[in-house]
C-alpha cells in the first residue's frame, strides 16, 4: 500500500468528502490561502473555491456558532480551531450549544458538525500552544471526541466523522502531521467509537491514543525483547469509549495501564481507569496504572517540556515495574 503522511491523509479525507457532498464546507482561521497553520487544508481552496474553503476572522466563538447554525440548516460544516488551547474561547458554544441542541430540542434536529483541532506538546511552544485538553470534553454528553494516531485512522475516521449526524470534536496531534504510514486510496471509512488492538499481548493491557500510541508501541517492543508481551489498544474515540474492547483485553491480561499526554488529575486516565475498575475489578492482579502528563502548565524549556509528558522510556520502566 502507498504511504502518505498523517497531514496528507487528513487532506485527502477532506478533499474526497467535499467532492462527494456539496454540503460539506470548511471554515476557520488561515485555512484557505495559507492552507492551515499545519498545512492540513493545503490547496483545498484552489480546488473547491473560496466559498467552500473560508478564511474567517479570529473569532473562535463565532466559528463554532456559525458552524452550528449552518449544520442545523442543511449544511455539513467542518470547522477548524487552530490550537486546542483556544478552546476556552469557544467552550460555551461547544459545551452549551453544539452538544446540547439536539437533546434540548427533543431530538428534532441533528448536528452534522465536525470541529477539527490539534493539540499536544513537542514543539516547545509553551503553555498556550501545547496542551492536551481532550479530557475537558469527556464531560460533555452529546459530543463525540475522536483522536486518531495513525495516518490511516486519520483518514478513515475523518471521513466517517464528516458523514455523522452528531457533532464531533476531532483532535489531531501537531507532532504527528509528518508521520508516514500506509493509507488506503479512495473510499475508506472507520467506525466512530471503535477501539483497535494495535499490538496483541497477554501480560498487560496498555491503552494509549494519539501521539502516546507511538511511545507505547515502542515500549511494548522493548518489553517483548525481555519476554513481556503487552497488548496495546488505541481507543481512537474517547467519547463514546469502546469499553468492550478494553474490558475484553483487561480480563485476559489482568493488568491495565493508561498512557495519556494530558495532565494527570481529572484526566482521560482517571475516567478510563475507573471504568476498568467498574467493569473488570475481579480480574485485576494489580492496581490500574496511569502514566500521564505532569500537573503543570506546559513549560517552554525543551528539557522541562520533555519531562512534562510521558515518553517511551518512562512507559517501558513503569510497565516493567508493574508487571515484574
Amino acid at each position: 500500500m502507498r504511504e502518505i503522511t498523517y497531514r496528507q491523509a487528513l487532506n485527502e479525507a477532506l478533499s474526497e468528502e467535499m467532492e462527494r457532498d456539496q454540503r460539506v464546507f470548511l471554515m476557520g482561521e488561515d485555512i484557505a490561502v495559507y492552507g492551515g497553520a499545519y498545512g492540513v487544508t493545503l490547496n483545498l481552496m484552489q480546488k473547491f473555491g473560496e466559498e467552500r474553503v473560508r478564511d474567517t476572522a479570529i473569532s473562535e466563538a463565532a466559528i463554532i456558532g456559525a458552524g452550528l447554525g449552518a449544520a442545523i440548516t442543511g449544511m455539513r460544516p467542518v470547522v477548524e480551531i487552530m490550537y486546542i488551547d483556544f478552546m476556552g474561547i469557544c467552550l460555551e458554544q461547544i459545551g452549551n450549544q453544539v452538544a446540547k441542541i439536539r437533546y434540548m430540542f427533543g431530538g428534532k434536529t441533528t448536528v452534522p458538525l465536525v470541529i477539527r483541532t490539534e493539540g499536544g506538546a513537542g514543539r516547545t511552544l509553551g503553555a498556550h500552544h501545547s496542551q492536551s485538553l481532550e479530557s475537558w470534553f469527556l464531560h460533555v454528553p452529546g459530543l463525540k471526541v475522536v483522536m486518531p494516531a495513525t495516518p490511516a485512522d486519520a483518514k478513515g475516521l475523518l471521513k466517517s466523522a464528516i458523514r455523522e449526524d452528531n457533532p464531533i470534536l476531532f483532535i489531531e496531534h501537531k507532532m504527528l502531521y509528518n508521520v508516514k504510514g500506509p493509507v488506503p486510496e479512495g473510499e475508506y471509512l472507520l467506525p466512530i467509537g471503535k477501539a483497535e488492538v494495535k499490538r496483541p499481548g497477554k501480560d498487560a493491557t496498555v491503552i494509549a491514543y494519539s501521539r502516546m500510541l507511538y511511545f507505547a508501541l515502542e515500549a511494548a517492543k522493548r518489553l517483548a525483547e525481555e519476554g513481556i508481551e503487552v497488548e496495546v489498544i488505541d481507543p481512537r474515540t474517547l467519547l463514546p469509549l469502546d469499553m468492550e474492547t478494553i474490558s475484553e483485553s483487561v480480563r485476559k491480561t489482568h493488568r491495565a495501564i493508561i498512557v495519556e499526554e494530558g495532565t494527570k488529575t481529572g484526566g482521560t486516565g482517571a475516567e478510563i481507569g475507573m471504568q476498568i475498575i467498574e467493569n473488570c475489578f475481579d480480574y485485576l492482579d494489580a492496581p490500574v496504572l496511569r502514566i500521564a502528563g505532569a500537573d503543570v502548565p506546559m513549560p517552554k524549556s525543551a528539557v522541562l517540556e520533555k519531562l512534562a509528558i510521558p515518553d517511551a522510556e518512562r512507559i517501558y520502566r513503569e510497565i516493567k515495574t508493574l508487571v515484574s
Binding site: F25, A61, G65, A66, G69, A70, I72, E92, Q93
Partner: peptide
C-alpha cells in the same frame, strides 16, 4: 431556538445566514 446563554444564539444566526448563502 431560545437560548439560556445571553448572546449564545447570535453565532447560530450568522451560521444559518451562511447556510442560506451557500
Amino acid at each position: 431556538g431560545a437560548n439560556g446563554i445571553v448572546g449564545g444564539s447570535i453565532g447560530i444566526a450568522a451560521g444559518a445566514g451562511l447556510s442560506i448563502q451557500l
